[in-house]
Write a protein that binds this DNA or RNA. Sequence first.
DNA 1: CCGGAAACGGATCGCCCGTTCCATTTGTGA
DNA 2: TCACAAATGGAACGGGCGATCCGTTTCCGG
Lengths: 233, 233
Amino acid sequence: MVAMEFPEVRKASTREGAAERRADAQRNRQRILTAARRLYATEGLGISMAAVSREAGVGKATLFRHFATVPDLVSAAFAEQMDAYVLATQEALAEDDAWWGFIRYVITVCEMQAGDRGFADVLTTALPGSADFEARRVQAYEGFLEVVERARSTGHLRDDFTSQDLILVLFANAGVVAATASEAPESWRRLIGHLIRGFAAEGAPTPSLPTPPDDEALYRAMTRDAPVAIRRR
Amino acid sequence: MVAMEFPEVRKASTREGAAERRADAQRNRQRILTAARRLYATEGLGISMAAVSREAGVGKATLFRHFATVPDLVSAAFAEQMDAYVLATQEALAEDDAWWGFIRYVITVCEMQAGDRGFADVLTTALPGSADFEARRVQAYEGFLEVVERARSTGHLRDDFTSQDLILVLFANAGVVAATASEAPESWRRLIGHLIRGFAAEGAPTPSLPTPPDDEALYRAMTRDAPVAIRRR
DNA sequence: CCGGAAACGGATCGCCCGTTCCATTTGTGA
DNA sequence: TCACAAATGGAACGGGCGATCCGTTTCCGG
């Protein structure tokens, strides 16, 4: 299997015409993005536009003038992380040990999900109407295909592992992260540890299994971080 | 390890005082439960009380008179499934092959999650104020501890598998189910297949890995079933 | 320093939510 | 059959949401 050339990662941060705007507009745009990133990171993509504008100290109309739709705001807020996401596949391919590169990649991506609840949602949600963003997702996915292929050729990754399995890992990890983020935030490492063992062919080296999360913390996670808000009376 | 006696499963369906109500009240109660179950099954617990009352063809006030809070309605709607959930551990313990019993149990529970999105949420959400319900969850959990212990003693289940891992499986499976239910509803079997391989000790028999879900269906799952509603403009 | 364009943000619209109120209807025991 | 308690459901309240309108403020080039 020949190592392939990789298309350059397009920097989404370079936006033409941004400099032409008035100074206060640029400042507000930045304030909005900062606020959105902070809220999304801790609360996920369920945050309302109204809440973002409040957090940013900006009128609703201003927010909508800068970002006409939710996907517009989301894709702008997560542009850098999307870059890092694409970059992760390239780092995995640069790794000498392809099997280890695969493992590192999976852990890195899940780490990104765990570190930012919004990004976890982003990775498991297509953003309608944001072509740029979706293109980078595809780019990352294609990179991952290479990572898988390389790892499989070492014989350490089971040969029935398919690219679809990565998406399932993202969905599964998003579920664990969403449930445990506030009470047992390292839980996902344990899940991924089990999964990597499942992905390993007979005799392949695997990292040691992380210690399980605390029992009571997990129960609190069930109680508090309901996937759906259930209020007390 | 001695096999333990098991407390009987309490039937939640037997409710004292139900017969004392007026006939139309009983009818409406049933209508509400039917409607709630139908909506919860397809949409998850995110359904509003207003939507349930509409689906049931009943005034909002009537709904609230029967079930004052969301947890009240939820726990009533899922009483039978909670019985089945508890029962599953006992069936697993009745299995001759403890390792096989463990596998069957995990698959059965995940199947229940996949078959009813509301139940998937229920299993990963404590219902505040519904002591009866929580008691049955604990009962099931204690049964599961036995299932694990028995399976571990066969040497087929890795000895570093802990009871917390089951909860992680539920969170992870809930994530996959929530994302794929409408577009690739069998996806979760693939995930659980990988996980079971991860749980198996060296040389333990494992069921064959289910075929991966269709690529395009998975992408559609990302597009449509956003964990958070993201509208087009 | 000043005028007009650019940007702002409070007010507002329409919608759905959970919750409560109360005039009306319905079941049922005497 | 009838009267009254039980049960109903439409209407109404307060609140948050996405989205838009429009009078006011702010920037910036000349």
